[in-house]
């Protein structure tokens, strides 16, 4: 489904043909649920939040700004909903611009560099868990960039952050992950 087709579907839904919304749900359910899953770290919560996101998107569709892509708008709803959920869950969130030297390591180093075996499935699973240790502000951009394959520009639009801040956070997030995996902190 290209952008033009998406706009046609949106027009149809706004005119009352709610069934057409199913095409948008089918198109974006996987990226949205993967984004939320990597943000909250729990599949059941992610599924429930993803459902909320699609409902919120449906009821707010009249407010969709056509200068953005639908996916950008949808991810903006998803990020807001997810951050709100994380706040309520009181997940440990460190000031976004603060340093990250205070994190408690989840994985202890066995002496070898985890980067030597990053292709290993176990390490990938560890990496998925390590993402959960990042502050939400860093987690958000690293997941959008690497899991959802959004461009820097799209991430800036989704998060409302300046492009330079997005790049900086992604770069720093990768360094944090390396430290977490190495058990250095």
């Amino acid at each position: 489904m290209d952008v033009t087709e998406e706009l046609q579907v949106i027009d149809a839904v706004l005119k009352g043909d709610a069934d057409r919304y199913e095409a948008l749900v089918n198109r974006y359910q996987k990226p949205i649920i993967n984004f939320i899953f990597r943000m909250v770290g729990n599949y059941e919560d992610a599924a429930e939040l993803a459902q909320d996101v699609f409902i919120k998107s449906y009821v707010s569709l009249a407010g969709f700004n056509r200068q953005y892509r639908f996916s950008t708008w949808l991810f903006r709803i998803a990020t807001n909903r997810t951050i709100d959920f994380l706040r309520k869950r009181k997940v440990a969130v460190v000031s976004m611009e603060g340093d990250y030297e205070d994190y408690t390591p989840q994985y202890k180093s066995d002496g070898s560099s985890p980067l030597d075996t990053l292709e290993d499935n176990r390490v990938k699973a560890l990496l998925g868990d390590a993402i959960q240790q990042l502050p939400a502000e860093y987690r958000e951009v690293i997941v959008l960039y690497h899991v959802n394959e959004a461009s820097y520009e799209e991430i800036a639009e989704i998060t409302g952050l300046p492009l330079g801040t997005v790049k900086n956070r992604i770069f720093r997030a990768r360094k944090m992950l390396k430290k977490i995996l190495e058990g250095e902190i």
């Binding site: 992610a46 599924a47 993803a50 990053l118 292709e119 990938k124 990496l127 690497h146 899991v147």
Partner: peptide
């Protein structure tokens, strides 16, 4: 690290999600 992050396995939506 970038390659590893991009290789993180994806999950599917639960059955009956739509």
């Amino acid at each position: 690290m970038s390659a590893a992050l991009s290789g993180i396995p994806k999950v599917n939506a639960p059955a009956g999600f739509t």
